[in-house]
Design a binder for these strands. Sequence first.
DNA 1: TTCGAAATTGTGAGCGTTCACATGGAGGGT
DNA 2: ACCCTCCATGTGAACGCTCACAATTTCGAA
Lengths: 345, 345
Amino acid sequence: MRASRTSSEKKRRSAVMADVAQLAGVSHQTVSRVLHDSPHVRPDTRERVLSAMRQLDYRPNTVAQALVTGRSRTLGVVSFDTTLYGPASTLLGIEQAAHDAGYGVSISSLRSLNRPSVIAAISRLRDQGVDGVVVIAPLRAGVEALRHLRPDFPVVAVEAGPDASIPVATVDQVVGAAAATRHLLDLGHRTVWHLAGPADWKEAEERVEGWRRALRQASAPVPALLRGDWTARSGYELGRSLLEQPDVTAVFVANDQMALGLLRRLHEAGREVPRDLSIVGFDDIPEAAYFTPPLTTVRQDFAELGRRCLHVLLARIEGEPSAAERAVVAPELIVRASTAAVAAR
Amino acid sequence: MRASRTSSEKKRRSAVMADVAQLAGVSHQTVSRVLHDSPHVRPDTRERVLSAMRQLDYRPNTVAQALVTGRSRTLGVVSFDTTLYGPASTLLGIEQAAHDAGYGVSISSLRSLNRPSVIAAISRLRDQGVDGVVVIAPLRAGVEALRHLRPDFPVVAVEAGPDASIPVATVDQVVGAAAATRHLLDLGHRTVWHLAGPADWKEAEERVEGWRRALRQASAPVPALLRGDWTARSGYELGRSLLEQPDVTAVFVANDQMALGLLRRLHEAGREVPRDLSIVGFDDIPEAAYFTPPLTTVRQDFAELGRRCLHVLLARIEGEPSAAERAVVAPELIVRASTAAVAAR
DNA sequence: TTCGAAATTGTGAGCGTTCACATGGAGGGT
DNA sequence: ACCCTCCATGTGAACGCTCACAATTTCGAA
């Protein structure tokens, strides 16, 4: 056995369990037991094996382990645009939590966010042997896709809104949006306008919902909402429509990038923030504190989000079907300089 | 064999090669041949096998394949802060290129960027069975780490500067920085100040180098450089020192975030950009076009960078040691509204 | 018709683990 | 002294695939 690997050979392949066993003078099974901290190994035997491992720089072959156990200790993450701050931070949170739990992470980015591509990404990861998948699929279509998966494969969705069919981890968008809106109302603004995200994004819709709810609760009029696409460009474009409206004194913008675009447009139009107009964003990207003016916004703790959703996923994998189906993390309003009490009129 | 899996069983495990073989009435080897498009299969046999595969929804077990071939068709990426625009975009570029080449991608984020953690991350990925690793390690220390790896494991570094010991893909920072500086000089500024990135980042140093070189070439005085840490905050802080200097009319800032912070400080100090001061950034983050004013900056094509470095890595894996050792992608100066000809004095 | 080479298909041995079980020895109660 | 149990260790068979080769078929040319 392994006759081809003589000591004269230049490049010896890395040591395997049998090599360790031989050197330590035990069977491969005993090596395996030592590897897994089995209590049924005599201390001196264990020591001998351990020393052989060190001597040969033995690393267990995880691929072989995966083959026989059916577990790879690897998770998959399918995500949309990891260039965006939110998804990127969530991914980071997941990765760190996974690492701490002893799992590796494989990723699969979607180029377009639709049902077939979400399904394809998941099954690609699955074929790769991952034990479970977390889907950062903020789109409605993405969520839909999850419904049609074999239910015995552990999947959890992030930010996919309140849908009972799949376990989920999410930031409470409604609460965040309501807090932003209420903050503006409390400052004395008669009502609050809203630059929304794309209608097919769950998060966008929930922010709209929170905004509406806060307005209604305060019996404030509900202005028509303006639809953007998360980019600074769209905030800039929408700024024009906003400027055509009379009496706009407060705007809740669905994310910080769009808020930046809006700020830019207002600046060009000679409107001063927050003197003439108050603005609240959403996300608290690292740059938000350095906008002109520093942006009041709603912070989402993406790292925590990643941790929580990993927790749910691991519970699933470990086979506790009764485990938490839903983890919600609370957003936080960060007040900076883009909001002020309404100007005396 | 497989007697335990009768048709009466509720949850049948997914089909394996033997199942397909049996259904098609051939040997497992023939199934394997069909799977790999071997020419030595009669068309009708192939058709029969294919149909059996479809019928059983057969998916080859990649883990088993990996075990026997020693290849997992998976790549590892170790990166630092995937929350930053640069690394995130590079990661995305790599992932897409890998996907197109039929490879999966596993990631491992570093919490801190030092030698032991880079080494640990690589060997973790390696133990996970990846065929090669790309290291997005912009830190000097990171590059150093690579020198001490077994040379038979394919590794390529991104943005790790000109070091011959490891193949590398990089954006030409020196050229980009020089272009930015020259642009300012051409506008009539006597000299150009520089807010640099951290000294232990290769990229930061190369930008300093490009800036110096352009200044010297134009026989312009070389002002003392100011050190930041890539954050908007540091740009803001450094802005104060800059304001204390007389005669500053042009600043080349090492990245867009710091430029944003600087812009903010200048605005607070009542200095108008570009009338009083011209600013150039670096990276061209998506928000840069919506800063106040829209930022002139140097664009790096991270997607291309990812593609190129993947190309180098795959060549390594496929065992062409003569393959390109170095891929350089050119940066591009994007002129917007933060730069203008020097004011008449 | 007959032979041989090429085309097609099958066989069995791994890849490096873990799992289920077998084996042998030490210790404890009677 | 004896039997039974528990502890420590070993044995051989999977896991699902590919590789090297062997076996069988097919078909054209002599």
